[in-house]
Nucleic acid binder design. Structure first.
Lengths: 332, 332
DNA sequence: ATGAAAGCGCTAACAT
DNA sequence: ATGTTAGCGCTTTCAT
């Protein structure tokens, strides 16, 4: 009763053909007589045959699996990205192993090793700082990779223009009359952090102001709600003039910041305006609907997978600021 | 310059030993002289050797990968579940392939086939209706499976007591004076849908009331915010007395329902109380903080993986109602 | 302690 | 159109 896995050999035997013919039915059905094909297929069904992917890949040398490493699977932003990848991969009958680095370079390295051992067809990564070097190792193993949500001259990548995103957010806040703005940023070794800062600085300069007067940056080690809350506390408890607006690295960080504002009885956006990033699906439904910079994550994922499979180059995607109540107030 | 993957053979050659010895270094390092071990390890490092998981698995017959199929990776509830699984698997050096069935039995079947071909060590599933039969096929292939967030006498499973969850939610609403309650449910073929309904009915009966008077059920084909909104529209546009409270299948459905209430200018909880399910991390930060039934998803995932690996049985987990503003109003 | 060799299931090149 | 067979990289006896 413990029927083990049937192999091509078993199928061949039952169908009264050779293993080569079974393989042909599997891979080149047109080269097989209708009659024998049907017979083999019946044998397969009868034995509940599933081809052994390990053996197949060992022989063929290439797998139909792609590794995807995102910074945080708990963040809907990244699952949406994964969805886009999956859409594209499904078209070519590939599948995906999804890993969450949790922004931890060690975990990331661990996963890269695992994926290399699995012999994946390629790797798609939203990189942490130290990623790029390790991808060189992979490439030397013949495993291509694509950076997502990031830009690199050394590696293929699909990117979003984070400079533009930062510029849009800060321009908007400046337009609303803010002159002291807190940037709740990620770690500085994250490209997104730096690019958005650059955009922020550009926006301030374009308004004829001095960035060092206007911008205050707090770098958070993790992009969680708790960290966002902690970052805001740190900034508010600091002596000196308090900021009147917050630009958060993502909506989850913004969520934490807004929580703290509520705890302190500060009104959003009158006492403090807030702009997030990613425009997650619940942004519009928060206690104060959250302004946010929307990114086309699904398309981005699609493009990344397409780039891996076909090497068609893709252009840089553009983010778009969505203004909602959390920043919709013009300071006198 | 196109250095291909190094194999044990290459390592053996460089180290001047046999492949068997290399394998021993990998799998039984204690059976090898310190001196040769070091030499082999150096050779590995020099060649950037990664063992080929396909070959390894083909030979060994078992893989260190576990398949996980959840209903919707976009829902943080399920990614939290996946985190729990991963926690447990990492302890035994296993990894996970994460798949999202999107509540589509066809997709689910597709993934099960894929996982079988990959020869995964086991499969963990949050099942749709038709799952259980297909798991029989897997078992016949020697691949064990564990149902999560569900209960079955035919399969190993780790469950949450959804009857209790439904009972807690409805008892609370009855306590608040509600006598016409809308249950925005999932498809009836989902066990969770049925169990929570049973709990709801028990609660109504325990209050000495007639369930058919009190409860109105709308089954949603998909558990999305848009469906939740649509379901509420359907119920509100229905002639006859409108409900005064909504019990939603999950927080995302609740989100959609609350959106529609806002569109209509109805006040939560005065005009309509809302209770969700899962207690997602943003539930407390919504426009009206959402009451919700919290489930210990991370522990559940941990238990599921533990069950697969060790066959230690686990008890049924208990949900807990968290009351917030969305239902915190006693009707006169 | 180390080496030699068989074989896991499959594919593809070659033979019939 | 179908059969035969070598070999992918690894682990695991069995010798030495």
């Amino acid at each position: 009763m413990t029927a083990q896995r049937a192999s091509v050999k078993d199928v061949a035997q039952l169908a009264g053909v050779s293993v080569g013919t079974v393989s042909n039915v599997l891979n080149r059905p047109e080269s097989v007589t209708e009659k024998t094909r049907v017979r083999v297929e019946q044998a397969m069904a009868q034995l509940n045959f599933h081809r052994n992917a390990s053996a197949r890949q060992l022989r063929a040398g290439v797998s139909r699996t792609v590794g995807v490493i995102v910074m945080d699977v708990g963040n809907p932003y990244y699952t949406e990205l994964a969805r886009g990848i999956e859409d594209r991969l499904a078209d070519d009958d590939h599948t995906l192993i999804l890993c969450s680095s949790d922004e931890d370079p060690q975990r990331e390295a661990q996963f890269l090793r695992l994926l290399a051992e699995q012999g994946v067809r390629g790797v798609l990564v939203t990189p942490t700082a130290s990623t790029t070097q390790r991808l060189g190792d992979l490439r030397r193993l013949g495993i291509p990779s694509v950076l997502m949500d990031s830009h690199s001259t050394q590696h293929t990548s699909v990117g979003v223009d984070h400079v533009s995103g930062g510029r849009q957010a800060i321009s908007h806040l400046l337009d609303q009359g803010h002159r002291r703005i807190l940037y709740l940023a990620g770690p500085t070794d994250l490209q997104q952090t730096r690019h958005r800062l650059r955009g922020a600085i550009e926006a301030v300069q374009a308004a004829g102001l001095d960035p060092t007067d206007v911008l205050r940056v707090v770098n958070l080690p993790n992009l969680t709600a708790n960290e966002g809350q902690r970052g805001l506390i740190e900034a508010l408890d600091d002596p000196g003039p308090a900021p009147t607006a917050v630009f958060a690295m993502n909506d989850i960080v913004a969520l934490g910041a807004m929580r703290e504002l509520r705890v302190r009885g500060l009104s959003i956006p009158r006492d403090m305006a807030v702009v997030g990033y990613d425009d997650l699906y619940f942004a519009a439904e928060l206690m104060t609907p959250l302004s946010s910079v929307r990114q086309p994550m699904r398309q981005l994922g699609w493009a990344a997978a397409d780039l891996l499979l076909t090497e068609h180059p893709h252009t840089v995607f553009q983010p778009e600021l969505i203004v909602r109540a959390s920043s919709d107030f013009r300071r006198p």
